[in-house]
Simulated scan of single mutants.
Amino acid sequence: MTHVARIARLHPQDLDDDQRAVYDAIAGGRRAQGPQLFALTDSDGGLEGPFNAFLLQPRLGGALQAVGSAIRYDTALTDRAREVAILVVAVRWSSAFEWQAHEAVGRHVGLSQQELDGIRSGEYAALPADERALAEAAARLAGDGDLDDAAYAQLVDLVGEAGVFELTTLVGYYATLALQLRVFRV
């Protein structure tokens, strides 16, 4: 089934000052530095993926973009661990955009085809033990939104309490994006 986008693509020349500040933080900020593994903007400069919707309410969109940037650049999770968790959320939410964008990032940070195929199918055996435990925790968080005492203790042993906070924030953020992508038919 093909869906038609529910919101118009906002272009740089049409933005007010508050929208422009959010746009600049995304299109010209940390996400735009280094290798571009997925497009942040289309050929006319409009924001791709979930980011266009951030412009609808710039104060909230700006805060959300700042959280996303912090998850990507300011946590102790390894690049591979972060991408594993994001891809687990993408699978749980059937988010094609998140999968496409972060599969490319995952490859860039060293995830093999076998590991990616496993994540896509919900089988994490191909991952190293620490990433497998993280993927299982992310799947539980993206599923019923909780960890039993044993899973929590295992995750604390693996990444510490701060790492549990980082992972729960990551799962919540990417679940939010997946929800927005779905509702706005991006």
Rank of each mutant, 00 (worst) to 15 (best):
A5D: 11
A5H: 07
A8F: 07
A8R: 12
L10R: 13
L10K: 11
D14S: 13
L15I: 06
D16P: 00
D16C: 04
D17Q: 15
D18I: 06
R20L: 15
A21P: 00
A21H: 08
A21V: 10
I26R: 01
A27M: 08
G28L: 13
R30H: 11
Q33K: 14
G34E: 07
G34V: 12
P35H: 09
P35M: 00
L37Y: 06
L37M: 11
F38K: 08
A39C: 04
A39S: 13
S43K: 13
L47D: 03
L47Q: 00
E48N: 15
G49V: 05
P50M: 02
P50N: 06
F51P: 02
N52W: 09
L55Y: 07
L56N: 08
R59P: 14
L60G: 08
A63N: 10
Q65F: 07
S69M: 10
I71Q: 10
Y73N: 09
Y73F: 15
Y73Q: 03
D74K: 07
T75E: 01
A76N: 09
L77W: 02
T78C: 00
T78L: 02
R80T: 06
A81D: 09
R82D: 01
E83L: 00
E83Q: 14
V84T: 09
A85Y: 01
I86V: 15
I86E: 00
L87C: 01
V88N: 05
V89P: 00
V89H: 02
A90F: 04
S94K: 15
S94G: 12
S95C: 15
W99A: 03
W99S: 08
E103D: 13
V105L: 11
G106D: 01
R107M: 06
V109L: 05
V109H: 06
V109I: 08
G110D: 04
S112D: 05
Q114M: 10
S121Q: 13
S121R: 12
E123H: 12
Y124W: 12
Y124C: 01
Y124E: 05
A125R: 13
A126W: 03
A129R: 12
E131L: 13
A133P: 00
A133G: 09
L134E: 04
E136Y: 03
A137S: 14
A137H: 03
A138V: 05
R140W: 04
R140C: 11
L141M: 09
A142M: 02
G145V: 03
D146A: 11
Y152Q: 12
Y152W: 12
Q154K: 11
Q154L: 14
L155N: 04
V156L: 05
L158W: 03
E161Q: 15
E161A: 14
G163H: 04
V164Y: 06
F165Y: 14
E166K: 00
G172M: 03
G172P: 02
G172I: 05
T176M: 14
L179I: 11
Q180H: 12
L181E: 04
L181W: 07
R182M: 12
R182I: 02
R182H: 13
V183N: 04
F184K: 10
V186I: 15
